[in-house]
Design a protein around this nucleic acid. Sequence first.
DNA 1: TAGTGGTCTAGACCACTAT
DNA 2: TAGTGGTCTAGACCACTAG
Lengths: 247, 247
Amino acid sequence: MNLTLDRISSVPLYAQIHGEIRRQIEADQLKAGAAVPSERELAEICKVSRMTARQALNALKNEGFVYQERGIGTFVAKRKLDVHTRNLIGFTEEMRGRGLTPSTKILLARRENAAQEVAQELGIETADEVFHFQRLRLADDSPLAFEDAFLPVKHFPDLDAKNLENESLYKILETEYGVAMRRAEEILEATCASKEIARALAIKPKSALLIVHRVVFSESNLAVESVRTFYRADRYRATFVLTKNAV
Amino acid sequence: MNLTLDRISSVPLYAQIHGEIRRQIEADQLKAGAAVPSERELAEICKVSRMTARQALNALKNEGFVYQERGIGTFVAKRKLDVHTRNLIGFTEEMRGRGLTPSTKILLARRENAAQEVAQELGIETADEVFHFQRLRLADDSPLAFEDAFLPVKHFPDLDAKNLENESLYKILETEYGVAMRRAEEILEATCASKEIARALAIKPKSALLIVHRVVFSESNLAVESVRTFYRADRYRATFVLTKNAV
DNA sequence: TAGTGGTCTAGACCACTAT
DNA sequence: TAGTGGTCTAGACCACTAG
């Protein structure tokens, strides 16, 4: 295990350690079942306290990359299902992680007054304006999902003037408005495609769709986006890692 | 905030603090938006170190119950979607959490040799035996899901002799075999009901179904169960809370 | 300036596992 | 007995926010 830390960097030490080990697991340099340095070893290698090393391993454990056995050690977890750790990331990032090339076609982009349900989800008034975007999401140039998104205008003035077709929305919010995503609530359900959505996605009506309804919150707990994504069931499956006691 | 800890208990202090605050939030004694004691205050109240208080708040944050703002404080998060924190729990526990009465009808319970895919998911050989259970899951006496589950025989001898109809499977594994669940990988997808499943669930063929494919791992990283659950889309939606940097 | 959360240290004791 | 992870302490400095 070879690990050099940048102590001047603003990136916390535990995050550097976490990132390096995760990189080695993803690059298969640390193979499934292999031992990861123990907390005390890692602390010694990196010249940090045990608590800092522990924090790095804890994050890896919560992401499902390693597991720990008391009295024995820390080991790289075997993935049984093809689970891409589904963090809080946008479409663009997720598709790249799956080795696909994402692209987007904007079908609708306008300002409107918030419908009651949307206003409630975003924590705003129905008199307030929202951006309403409908986007067709493609992977390797073939339709994958239809997206219906709402964002509050007051927090993102002129968002509709940005290049939404080629830039990741979450990236724009972070770089242009300084709003970073922190948390999301998701509801997943199944349905059959309506004629309109079937046409947009180039599938037969009544084909199965996976609906992901997501409300995204910023670092300061602002509801930033309410979005429903209708995925073609034949091309998309959502993956999660669940852990007990995510402490 | 009124918090008394049992220092003799085997339950860790941070878990007691976490549990008590979570209880108050779920009972609406701590209302959305309300301030939770700061880390230092909580440490003072409970007579623990700040790191211990912090560990309790961290768990609440990862579960989406609170959010923290640097320089300001810790607050109870507003839930926008009707998200029941979907931890690593079984059907029985989940339904009770949703205020429904779960019941189960066993359709199939036998031993068989593991199919290749199942063997791979459970990390066993195809020559090894598995229990194969098919169960109809009901909520408030109405069909909700069809379940197809596989567990390795060698780790759970005589499991088929247990009372699977009335007891939670996960509870049996824990109390009878000392195997506690720690982690699961899940894949969610949408499909249309086949004739057989439609009949079992009392819905029309080709109705939408939500499939949850789950592989569950124990504390010692044993693959304990591979299960596919076919939920009626009209009666079930899966909910998640995602957080960035689950450290 | 006072208070907050974010990070980090250098220890400690415990229960557990393997040899 | 030696090593592991789980828990806990009593501090410290930092960047940030509010009044």
